[in-house]
Nucleic acid binder design. Structure first.
Lengths: 360, 360
DNA sequence: CTGTTAGCGCGTTCAC
DNA sequence: GTGAACGCGCTAACAG
């Protein structure tokens, strides 16, 4: 009848000491079978529920991991979260989720909060780029809370990371487009304008290495062009805001060029829908007039008319791996930081053809 | 240099009592400006971080809410989670997320866990149907942890709930299809077979009222048919497993009937892609041969050929409202349980036409 | 204004 | 086998 029976109420009600109750309920130490039974039934009758907060206070472990990502409502992250939290849960951990919307300030606040809540570890898809401050990562480290980086690494520091072979997969796909005869390939979307000097020519690979997912993909595009001796035409790269509307506008712009693209490579789902929208608007047909290739396979891509070729990421697996790395760290398996690079898979469908007017 | 400076280490280092430090750091009570400054800088130098666990232990509040849903990787829930957790975070709460995959056992475990972790409230998209046990909801109640039901209510008990006007929106859309001349309307997908006797004729509305999202939608379908004097043909309803493959198989089956459907209503995204896949397979064209209507608008539906008509739910708003209701409860605003029913919006696109062979 | 002290609920050592 | 007692870090009375 009391509202939140504690361990000592159970003790009182069953006529034993608190420690005995703690032992039976905790399943450790010696307890006579008789009293064990009794305590158990009494606890059940009283509706006893252990207070995990108090447990955490004395054990120093919350059995909770923090998951900091850009945006849960983005299908990519939705799948990542699923993989990560399922794996965590299967190991007795639950997950505190925070979305940062690519805002470094929010990320810093989130990590601090998670540290304060004493999570046992953090999986982080960081918003940090280039030379941004990483004090929050150090705070976690200082509290010996392990961090695993997901989808985006921070080359300056060594953390366990799980990433995708972005650069290589884009390079290969673009090369394939080129071997189909395309030389004018529109690209939606590119990295932030602020990073432009970094991926454009004149930088060492080492400097370029401190790039993000989008930077990596852009590098793949550049690699492929360079490999085939095609010069970069910056007019074919979408810069600026990253949303469907802007993608549509930029693709429209490109289609209006004197020498328009005969193919488009889209690095995200929204970039793809924006592109498709612009192509639709221009009454062009795929793949007769333009070829299309996207990133992140979705079920609708297969039923689209025509079905769209996609680079498919092992999205859920990304989360699973991150959780596993984190759990190993939490369990004190202290090796050197590991970086796992997962492979993408290209799903060829009929959205790719030969350009109408092959350049001489 | 010590690893996790506590409040008393800060006290020692700044030559004052623990309480004074607690007051300055906690920002309550009186502290002279001079000592305040000193304590603050000392705390900063030491890299002091409050232990939220300890705080929660003494205040009895964790500033955390639990969010129990079916599946984060489902775009619908992804958006719900976004709305709910953003709203919570804006109010200083973070969210513990658990997916149940529609398994009641997982749900029960999740709720118990959240209770044990002493979350301040729970938002629950329950897997409970019909007369399933709801002991876990009572456990939470007993610990005076408020619960807000989301997307699915449990009519037997009174909880704050945020739901969609499923029945009405489906009824209206089906009626519209009928007024276009369709009388054979395929339905993918229906409620579990086990519930069949409940939504089929012969039951009072009260009994039917204890249905789920899918049951509600099915009722809308039945309402519309009944309103136009069309008899239910159970062959036009997809039952059984709920996934894309089975949807495709069922739609193929329906298309093979002597008197096949001239329109399809799809209650979920996967049901829709499965349906589109089957239609593609059969080389039928939309809307000439068959009309299509879906639930849950997605960005690709607008760029599809032809663009697909959709019932759009205020998905994110669902999460926002749930959070707001929960926060009000947490803040002790104790009114009677409220049920908020949100409106859907129908987005008419060109996937709907007149049937080729109008029934006489 | 400031320091002392008693909890919060549980894990755990150490005698009995 | 079992119970008493201390500590985890912090909040909140209560004296001074």
């Amino acid at each position: 009848m009391t509202r939140n029976p504690t361990i000592s109420e159970v003790a009182k009600a069953s006529g034993v000491g608190r420690a005995t109750v703690a032992r039976t309920l905790g399943g450790y130490g010696y307890v006579s079978e008789a009293t064990r039974k009794r305590v158990l039934t009494v606890a059940d009758d009283l509706g006893y529920r252990p207070n995990r907060l108090a447990q955490s206070m004395s054990t120093g472990s919350t059995r909770t991991i923090g998951l900091v990502i850009a945006d849960v409502s983005n299908p990519f992250f939705g799948d990542v979260v699923r993989g990560a939290s399922d794996t965590a849960m299967a190991n007795g951990f639950d997950t505190l989720l925070v979305s940062t919307y690519e805002d470094v300030g929010s990320e810093v606040a989130a990590v601090k909060l998670l540290v304060d809540k004493r999570v046992d570890g953090i999986i982080l898809s960081t918003a940090v780029r280039g030379m941004d401050d990483i004090g929050h990562l150090q705070i976690a480290e200082q509290h010996s809370i392990p961090i695993v980086l997901l989808d985006r690494s921070v080359p300056r520091v060594q953390f366990d990371s799980v990433i995708i072979n972005n650069r290589e997969s884009v390079r290969n796909s673009i090369s394939a487009l080129i071997s189909h005869g395309h030389t004018r390939i529109g690209y939606a979307w590119g990295p932030p304008v602020a990073e432009r000097p970094r991926w454009q020519s004149g930088l060492s690979d080492a400097a370029r290495n401190d790039l993000w997912t989008d930077g990596e993909r852009m590098m793949g595009y550049l690699d492929a062009l360079a490999g085939e001796g095609i010069e970069l035409d910056i007019d074919l790269v979408m810069l600026g805001e990253k949303n469907e509307e802007h993608a549509a506008a930029e693709v429209s712009r490109m289609l209006g060029l004197a020498d328009p693209p005969t193919a488009f490579f889209c690095t995200e789902t929204e970039a793809l829908t924006g592109t498709l929208s612009a192509i639709r608007e221009a009454s062009l047909s795929i793949p007769k007039d333009v070829s299309i290739m996207g990133f992140d396979d979705s079920s609708w891509a297969a039923v689209f008319e025509p079905p769209i070729s996609m680079i498919k990421q092992p999205t859920r697996e990304l989360g699973v791996r991150a959780s596993n790395l984190l759990l190993e760290r939490i369990n004190g398996i202290a090796e050197d930081p590991r970086i796992e690079e997962l492979e993408t898979e290209v799903i060829w469908r009929s959205s790719i053809g030969r350009p109408l007017h092959v350049e001489k």
